[in-house]
């Protein structure tokens, strides 16, 4: 009578306690957008589901409508179009860290993807999910800000391109409308030499929500910095781009800069809070150190 495999399948189907109505798994973006338009905020969008299933743990049966993007193969591509890199929203962290295109052109993004969660999370979690969850601690967000990324949001009405720094509006809040889907992440490429650094501070090496992240991307003509992208995570209600500091660095030689002073500027430009992962004071102090470390690392890379 005792068996290792239970549950008559029909009982799960027929017996209630569930609010479930419909599961959509469209194979075209157009179809997905139509469903999204029809159900709006009634529907849960599922990409890699790593955030979705945690947020709805023990109440998956309460979700009425699902829109699963997993069969949208168009969103799983990484391509270069007109000197821009287009990354589909369904590209996983694992794809990012393995892609030669990303490693070569967006090394800081590849490094951040490699630090997400664990192998089990990276194989499923997507860049689109990381962006749409809009956690201030989302590891890909600071790198995207420092590369000057834009997001393509589509709806049945058309599409719009939103700059990364305008997309995030608060902790887990963003400017996406309930009839829109994020389809692509667009990042400009350059012929200039680009060097960068990614630093994630957390309590463990794996499976850790960041206490603080820093992404620095510098573009050089000769020795001169012609463009700087500096962004941080977990130090404010949204991931932040530190434009004031970027401005100070442009048109300078890296080795002429006072790293420690820049670190103090970073500290002055952020607004962290006390939480489980660290205190405000800790984050401010660490911000100085990671900035110095990042600039030293870039200096090393540039000179070698």
């Amino acid at each position: 009578m005792m068996r290792k495999s239970p549950m008559k399948q029909e009982s799960r189907q027929t017996i209630s306690g569930v609010d479930f109505k419909e599961y959509f798994q469209p194979e075209s973006i157009q179809k997905a957008l139509e469903i999204r338009a029809e159900y709006g905020d009634q529907i849960e969008v599922a990409a890699g589901s790593t955030d979705l299933l945690v947020a709805n743990y023990e109440k998956l049966h309460e979700i009425k409508y699902w829109l699963d993007l997993v069969k949208l193969d168009q969103l799983k591509k990484i391509e270069v179009i007109d000197n821009e890199l287009h990354i589909g929203a369904m590209v996983t962290h694992l794809q990012l860290m393995k892609s030669d295109l990303i490693k070569k052109n967006l090394a800081v993004l590849a490094a951040a993807a490699e630090d997400v969660g664990s192998p089990q999370i990276r194989s499923r979690g997507t860049i689109g999910g990381n962006i749409c969850t809009s956690s201030p601690a989302g590891d890909l967000l600071a790198p995207l800000l420092s590369y000057g990324a834009s997001f393509k949001l589509q709806s049945t009405e058309g599409e719009r391109i939103v700059k990364a720094e305008e997309f995030f509006t608060g902790p887990k809040r963003n400017s996406m409308e309930t009839d829109e889907l994020l389809t692509e992440i667009i990042i400009p490429l350059t012929d200039n030499k680009r060097e960068g650094s990614w630093i994630k501070v957390g309590r463990r090496k794996a499976l850790v929500i960041s206490t603080l992240t820093l992404a620095v991307v510098l573009e050089f003509e000769g020795e001169k910095i012609v463009k700087a992208g500096i962004a941080m995570g977990s130090v404010a209600p949204t991931p932040v781009r530190l434009k004031g500091i970027e401005a100070v660095m442009v048109d300078q030689k890296l080795t002429d800069l006072d790293y420690k002073a820049l670190g103090r500027e970073v500290k002055a430009s952020i607004n962290p809070i006390d939480d489980l992962r660290g205190t405000k004071e800790y984050r401010e102090d660490v911000a100085v150190d990671v900035m110095v470390r990042a600039l030293k690392e870039i200096e090393r890379k540039v000179s070698s």
């Binding site: 599961y23 798994q25 599922a46 890699g48 589901s49 790593t50 299933l53 945690v54 743990y57 998956l60 699902w66 699963d68 997993v70 694992l94 969660g117 664990s118 192998p119 089990q120 999370i121 194989s123 499923r124 499976l207």
Partner: peptide, 25 residues
């Protein structure tokens, strides 16, 4: 919740936390 790896399976060649995959996926 994806934290412990006890539910690990290999899905399409990659390690996957089966507790975070809705069956239709």
């Amino acid at each position: 919740k994806g934290e412990c790896g006890a539910c690990t399976v290999i899905m399409n060649g990659e390690l996957t936390a089966s507790c975070l995959v809705p069956a239709p996926q």
